[in-house]
Each structure stands twice: as structure tokens, then as C-alpha cells.
């Protein structure tokens, strides 16, 4: 019995050491190379840290969207990318999400993507070809998405609302 207990404690200690080592190994690359994906407090911090100046930020926000954003994720390697999540003014839930990446592969989970599409139409966004999708989120709320390519980036804006506010936000996006 004593041997079994000693074995159990020893095994638990091994697991704790392993977990700590994995945490350390997961953190080490962020020191060795700050260009990896991580969270930033604001957009100027992203521009300064990653030396990427052409990041688009909306200048128009409807009343229902809270400023500042809840989360900003960004990376410069293997390709520049930024994902910004905004909560609602009166709720702790994502209502707006913008993604800008130099690869179509970058697709963070937003939780507000239309799960049932009702309409997909081409849209002229400041002279660029965009795709507007209107549908319903997984919770049944109306949501919409606008995607387009600008210079080297794939840009995606998703919002829990009708497309009118979404288009205004997308039109206001500037470096």
C-alpha cells in the first residue's frame, strides 16, 4: 500500500514537471521570435512590434459596438495577420470581428459566422470586388459577412446585425 502511494505521488510529480516544461517550451518561442501569433493591447502596439503599417482599422463604429476591442491577435510570421474582436456595448459577447491576413489559411474561430446563408451577392466596396453574405448565426441571430482582397491581404468582416451597418464599417476601414 505504501509502495502504491509512493508510486502515485512520484507519478503525479512527474506529470507536474512535464506540464511546467511544456508551458515553458510553449512560451520560449515568443521570446526567441516576437513575430509569432500573440495578443496585443492595441493596434499601435501591433504596428510597432511587428513593423507592419498597412493594417486596416474601422473608423466608423455603430452604437452597439464597444470600443476598445476585447482582443487583438496578430503575427508577422509566417505571414502578417491580425484578428480583432469587439464586444457589444451592453453585452459581453462578440458582435464584430475583423480579420486581415496575407494568407487565406488564417481563420480564427469568431463564433459569429453565418451558419445558414440566405443571400450571397457581389458588392462594390470602394471600387473593390467584395462578397456580401447574409444569413443567421448558430444562435439564430441575423448576421452578415463581407470579404474582399486588398493588396496582399484577405480581409473579412463579420457582424451580428443586418448588412447595412457592416457595409458602413467596412467602407470606413483605413490603414
Amino acid at each position: 500500500m505504501r509502495d502504491a502511494l509512493r508510486g502515485l505521488l512520484s507519478f503525479a510529480a512527474i506529470l507536474l514537471v512535464l506540464l511546467a516544461a511544456l508551458k515553458l517550451l510553449n512560451w520560449a518561442p515568443t521570446v526567441l521570435d516576437p513575430g509569432g501569433l500573440r495578443e496585443y493591447p492595441n493596434v499601435p502596439a501591433v504596428r510597432a512590434a511587428l513593423q507592419v503599417q498597412d493594417l486596416l482599422v474601422p473608423s466608423y463604429f455603430p452604437e452597439q459596438v464597444r470600443w476598445p476591442p476585447r482582443r487583438i491577435l496578430a503575427q508577422s510570421k509566417p505571414y502578417p495577420a491580425m484578428a480583432v474582436t469587439y464586444d457589444g456595448t451592453h453585452q459581453e459577447e462578440t458582435v464584430l470581428h475583423t480579420t486581415q491576413a496575407a494568407s487565406a489559411e488564417f481563420a480564427p474561430e469568431t463564433g459569429i459566422a453565418p451558419t445558414t446563408l440566405r443571400e450571397t451577392v457581389p458588392y462594390d466596396l470602394n471600387g473593390r470586388e467584395a462578397i456580401l453574405e447574409v444569413g443567421v448565426c448558430s444562435n439564430g441571430a441575423p448576421c452578415s459577412r463581407l470579404t474582399w482582397q486588398q493588396d496582399r491581404y484577405w480581409i473579412k468582416v463579420e457582424m451580428v446585425s443586418s448588412p447595412f451597418e457592416l457595409i458602413k464599417i467596412a467602407q470606413s476601414m483605413r490603414p
Binding site: 511544456l22 508551458k23 518561442p29 515568443t30 521570435d33 513575430g35 509569432g36 491577435l73 484578428a83 474561430e109
Partner: peptide, 24 residues
Amino acid sequence: PERGAVDFRLRALFDSARWLNLEL
């Protein structure tokens, strides 16, 4: 199915992509 997505990787105990993206 979203285990490979950005959000899961950010919360992961160890994300191998962080090392694979490195240039020593």
C-alpha cells in the same frame, strides 16, 4: 474539429507551430 484553429492553439499547453515557425 477546431483543434487546429488559432483559438485552440492559443489556449493549448504546447503549440508546435510556434517552434516550426521559428528561424534560428
